[in-house]
Structures are given as structure tokens and as C-alpha cells.
């Protein structure tokens, strides 16, 4: 761990005044402290934001508002979230471990870094950690790596489960900085690696995530999160699917679908959504709708199974949701 300055902000304004290039905001610390110990991240200044008034879970006409400093376990346990946005509660409960969920914040969850082993090992080349050094995963062990949104520079998988659920529901992330407040759809908040994998989102230096807003919808209450992994708990996704359906009788009116473990960012599948809309909720519909779900995927030596797993994960999630109904 490199030496750094530490400050505890008492207000958002104070936090922003302290922030700029080389600053990291500290919330739950479950990613930041871990990566600082590995010297993957070496901020010059750390600003503790835990005392800022950025908590709260509120449900109103516009939808669900979650403060950036809410802890994952508190959001997962919230009655409103569980009843009206089950996909969010499920995605949170299937993340990390109980201890981590008690510490990790919602804002921090959205900004967590990839679990790519080469990113985390400073002795290996990694374009995301050290731009221009090369990508070790392309020729290394890449079973867990992404097949969608990849580039020659980076194939690291986005790690958040929550972000997959939020992208499916069309959530916005609320940001603030010295230049004012703004809201950005989470789907476009994340950027593709392209030739600059060190850039992962549109956050500006010193800008702070203050919360998330999930719009009211006809599908959020009828939603589920399915996570496929090598072991039953405490492991990142081989694949995951957030699925929300608005149905009328046995007919799917609208669908919202995003997948995890597949992309360099949470991956919305609008083509599958379109293929489901207006169709009967049957196994045949699902099979046919997911047929082209992995179009455009680019597989590597050890993750050739992922397109098939993606399709099967979707069919299973849709089937499970239908069985719940």
C-alpha cells in the first residue's frame, strides 16, 4: 500500500472540495482497500464519505430512490424493494458474502472493479491497470472472461450483480460535482473498453455517486435474478440474468433483460426483449427468443461455452419467472 492522505468529509460540499485527480472516495471499502493493498489502486488522497447524508430508501411516484451509502444488506432486506423490485433484492443477496454485503455500499457496488486475475496481479501486463502494457488474459487463462463488448485491449468481465438488475430496469445513477448534479442512465454510464480499458464509466474526476433511481414500471414487480456459478455461494457469476416481464394473461407484453458474467459491462439484450414482446409465455417462445442472444460474442480459448450458457441461463430464468407467476 502506498502512502496517501486521508480526510473525513462532513458534507457533500466538503467532499467535493477535497476531490480531484488522484482522489478516491471511501465508502464500504470492500473494493478500494482490497485493491490498495494489492497496489492495483494507489490513490494519493482518500476521502471518507461515510458520514455524508447519502442514505435512505424511498419509494414514490417516480420510482425507487436508493442512496449511494445504503449498504447492500439493508437494501436487500427492504420490504419495498423485495415486494416491488425483487430482481434487485435477489441480485444483492446472491452477491459476495454476508460480511461483505454488510459493509459494501450501493454506490461502491456500481463502481467495483473487475475480478480479472491479471488486473489484480501487478506483476502481469494489464491494459486496464497500466495502459499500453498489454492484455494477459487474451493468451492466459480466460474461462471467466467476457465475450460481449470486448476489445483487443481488454476482455475483463464486469463484476456487479446489482448493476445487471439495475440496467434491466432502466435505472439512472445520480451524480454530483462542483459543476452541479446530473443523472445518467446506468446502461450508458458504463463505457466499453475499446482502446482505453482504464476508463470504465463517464464519471468525471472528483464526481460523486449520490444515489440510484429505478423508474416505476409494469414489469419490475414481476422480475427475477438468476446467477450461475461454480459453487453455491460467495462466487462471481459464470453467467447471470436479470429478467422482468409485463404479462397479460399468458402473453408477454414487454420484457426487460440484462445479463452478467458475459460482458465488459452489464449487458442489456434488447433483441431478446423484442423477440419476447407480444408472444405467449411458453418454452418455445423462450427457446426461439434466445437463439440469437449471443450474436456478436467473441469467445476465447477457455470460455467457448459462454454463448450456450448465456442462452440456457436466459431460458432457465424465464422459465423460473413463469413458474412463479
Amino acid at each position: 500500500m502506498r502512502p496517501y492522505t486521508f480526510a473525513r468529509a462532513r458534507s457533500v460540499r466538503q467532499a467535493l472540495a477535497n476531490a480531484g485527480e488522484g482522489t478516491a472516495f471511501l465508502a464500504g471499502g470492500t473494493t478500494l482497500v482490497d485493491l490498495m493493498k494489492l497496489e492495483v489502486m494507489s490513490p494519493e488522497h482518500v476521502v471518507d464519505i461515510n458520514r455524508l447524508p447519502l442514505g435512505g430508501i424511498r419509494h414514490d411516484r417516480d420510482g425507487l430512490h436508493i442512496g449511494a451509502l445504503e449498504r447492500m444488506s439493508d437494501v436487500a432486506a427492504d420490504d419495498t424493494v423485495r415486494r416491488h423490485y425483487p430482481v434487485i433484492a435477489q441480485a444483492l443477496e446472491l452477491s459476495a458474502s454476508g460480511q461483505l454485503r454488510n459493509m459494501a455500499s450501493i454506490g461502491g457496488n456500481l463502481l467495483q472493479r473487475t475480478r480479472c486475475g491479471y488486473f489484480r496481479d501487478v506483476s502481469t501486463p494489464c491494459n486496464k491497470r497500466e495502459p499500453g502494457s498489454g492484455c494477459s488474459a487474451l493468451t492466459g487463462f480466460n474461462r471467466m472472461h467476457a465475450i460481449l463488448g470486448t476489445s483487443d485491449a481488454c476482455v475483463a468481465t464486469h463484476a456487479s450483480d446489482l448493476a445487471v438488475a439495475l440496467v434491466a430496469l432502466g435505472a439512472e445513477v445520480r451524480l454530483t460535482s462542483g459543476r452541479g448534479d446530473r443523472a445518467v442512465p446506468l446502461e450508458t454510464f458504463y463505457t466499453l473498453p475499446g482502446g482505453t480499458p482504464e476508463v470504465e464509466n463517464v464519471l468525471r474526476p472528483g464526481e460523486l455517486v449520490t444515489g440510484v433511481t429505478v423508474p416505476r414500471s409494469a414489469w419490475a414487480a414481476h422480475s427475477t435474478y438468476l446467477k450461475i456459478r461454480d459453487r453455491q455461494s460467495y462466487e462471481f457469476a459464470l453467467s447471470s440474468a436479470a429478467v422482468a416481464l409485463e404479462t397479460r394473461g399468458r402473453t408477454i407484453k414487454q420484457a426487460r433483460i440484462a445479463v452478467g458474467g458475459m460482458g465488459t459491462r452489464p449487458w442489456r439484450l434488447t433483441s431478446v426483449e423484442r423477440a419476447l414482446a407480444g408472444k405467449p409465455a411458453t418454452a418455445d417462445t423462450y427457446e426461439s427468443a434466445v437463439r440469437r442472444a449471443a450474436d456478436g460474442a467473441s469467445t476465447l480459448e477457455h470460455n467457448e461455452f459462454k454463448p450456450a450458457l448465456l442462452r440456457r441461463t436466459l431460458v432457465r430464468a424465464l422459465t423460473a419467472l413463469q413458474e412463479q407467476a
Binding site: 475480478r115 496481479d121 459453487r231 453455491q232 455461494s233 460467495y234 462466487e235
Partner: peptide
């Protein structure tokens, strides 16, 4: 080189 990447069973398994 970590127990996050080298998986052993957890209680749930």
C-alpha cells in the same frame, strides 16, 4: 493465487 480464484467448497455446497 487467492482463495477468490482457487475455489474450495463453501458451507452452502
Amino acid at each position: 493465487s487467492t482463495l477468490a480464484d482457487y475455489l474450495v467448497p463453501v458451507n452452502a455446497d
